[in-house]
Amino acid sequence: MILPPVRYVRPQSVAEAASLLAAIDGAAVLAGGQTMINALKLDLVQPTALVDVHRLEELRGIEVADDGSLVIGAATTYAEIAASPVVRHHQPSVADMAAGLVDRQVRNRGTIGGNCCLNDPTNNFPPLLTALGAWFHITSTAGWRSITADTLFAGSLATALRPGELLMSVRLKPLPEGTRIVHRHLQLAADSWALARVVVRLDVIDGRVEDARVVLGAVPGSPLRLATVEQALLGHPADTRLTDAALTAFDEADVETVGDAHASAAYRLEMTRVQLRRALDDAVERSVAA
């Protein structure tokens, strides 16, 4: 397809970007463009202007805050995240996700902020960042606020971002000792969309699950937390019986899947269960091994 005519502005600072977003009704943020440009071509979005924040230094970079949190600028590319020893050290699951994301061209352009702000159900980061309990720092001409992943991700292609707001950074607190993060997904091909995606987080203390997050991707409403499964895991011994307990609590009625050219809804649901079981098995195994 061919791009529609659209006004393009490249602010020199976050303050200017916020002013432009406030001033131009219907303006959209352009970062790496890996989803936005396709959405424009397909006429899925009709912004009045694109505010290009890709080169804003204030939005790029990776650092460790005083409290030990990892802070990743919203316009940091997947390639930068994948190559960062700091991310690898503090949040290896984030580094793995970035490194395994489609192909090099996309990794060189696509940004973690864009991935989150579009919140397409097939996007990789929202389920993981939900499991990690990420915080999102947001700015606008009205000031700034910080919200959790649970708040930001408001359903397929929807976020809690208000018109005029700009995502600044993603903040990840240090994980407690004994926390296991497992990401499992099933794809038709190496760089195609996931048919099923599960992220499991188990915080294990003294052999018991202190906290748990079980998050699905690639389903409507993604990232979707499975509250009943999480509940069943709380306090459960981190052993091989844990998976069965979780699967017993897993109510397929909580999950809606949609069929398309690649797979039926029934297959996707079944694969979600398979990936859930495998993720839990992996998490327990690591926990036991630890």
Partner: peptide, 27 residues
């Protein structure tokens, strides 16, 4: 991977590369 499927109304289900996966070097 590659399949030009049609639904019952005759709509092509793989009208672009979102839904029509041609193998890349990764595959």
């Amino acid at each position: 991977f590659e399949h030009f499927g049609y639904d019952a109304d005759g709509q092509l289900t793989a009208a672009n590369f979102y839904d029509y996966h041609a193998a890349t070097a990764y595959d």
